[in-house]
């Protein structure tokens, strides 16, 4: 636990020691604002909720989360610090979890910084704050899922651009796995059980459930499993490729 905390602290401080954090926060806030107020028609709808705000999160994350995830391991491998990190008395799982948590908490901080939007909608009307809180949690969980995918992709290469592109593609597949674009690949030949399984993997449907305020344990289990599975994959990939 101590080791995870040590890795976590170093990593999180690293975001703020470079322009990465500040650039990311500004872009994230500007983009959520643009999506909410222009594309989402926040005022025009005349409804006191944050649906226009949350509706675009999956698409925003599709590009912004891989941008945060791409440096996690690719940078360590490129600069050789991975050798330093993994010869300290820190185990591989501790390093993987510590770095993941730092990035996830950082994304959480970005989300918390959008609270003025929440305050605005409370000032203008009388929204269901329980639903909004649930949607925030769902959004953060989805960000965690994408981040775990991105972290694993980042361990595959020492090139951050390659890591970014791989992450975007993998996240895209996970986002859309319930939609025809992905399902048509399988529907001709795969058994129904597999089709259902693939459709059930979609980030979108689970996120939609939570953000409607439907707190279902299965959605939480789903995100926990996605994050856990990708972090295990991250450890395996790292163990195989760290010496290259």
């Amino acid at each position: 636990m101590n080791a995870i905390w040590t890795v976590f602290r170093r990593e999180l401080a690293g975001y703020f020691a470079t322009p990465v954090a500040w650039v990311f926060i500004v872009i994230f806030l500007v983009m959520t604002g643009v999506f909410t107020f222009y594309l989402g028609g926040f005022y025009e709808r005349g409804v006191a909720d944050l649906d226009p705000f949350f509706r675009f999160h999956p698409w925003l994350y599709l590009f912004l989360v891989p941008a945060i995830a791409m440096r996690l391991w690719a940078e360590e491998r490129r600069s050789g610090t991975i050798e330093l990190l993994l010869t300290l008395p820190i185990s591989l799982p501790q390093a993987v979890v510590g770095k993941f948590l730092a990035a996830w908490v950082f994304l959480g901080v970005c989300l918390v910084l959008t609270v003025p939007t929440w305050l605005t909608v409370n000032y203008l009307g009388d929204p269901d704050n329980g639903v909004i809180l649930a949607a925030y949690i769902g959004s953060w969980l989805m960000a965690g899922g994408m981040l775990a995918i991105g972290a694993c992709m980042s361990a595959l290469t020492r090139n951050q651009v390659v890591a970014f592109i791989l992450s975007v593609v993998a996240c895209f597949v996970f986002l859309l796995s319930g939609l025809p674009m992905v399902m048509d690949l399988f529907s001709g030949w795969a058994p129904q059980v597999l089709l259902d399984a693939i459709a059930g993997l979609s980030f979108l449907s689970h996120y939609a459930d939570i953000s409607k305020g439907v707190i279902d344990l299965r959605d939480f289990v789903y995100f926990a499993l996605v994050i856990g599975a990708w972090l295990v994959a991250n450890m395996i990939v790292l163990d195989m490729r760290k010496g290259e």
């Binding site: 170093r10 690293g14 600069s79 610090t81 330093l84």
Partner: peptide, 13 residues
């Protein structure tokens, strides 16, 4: 104690 080849360290720290 280990000094890896090229003495890598976290440059931003």
């Amino acid at each position: 104690g280990y000094l890896p080849e090229g003495a890598p360290s976290y440059g931003e720290m």
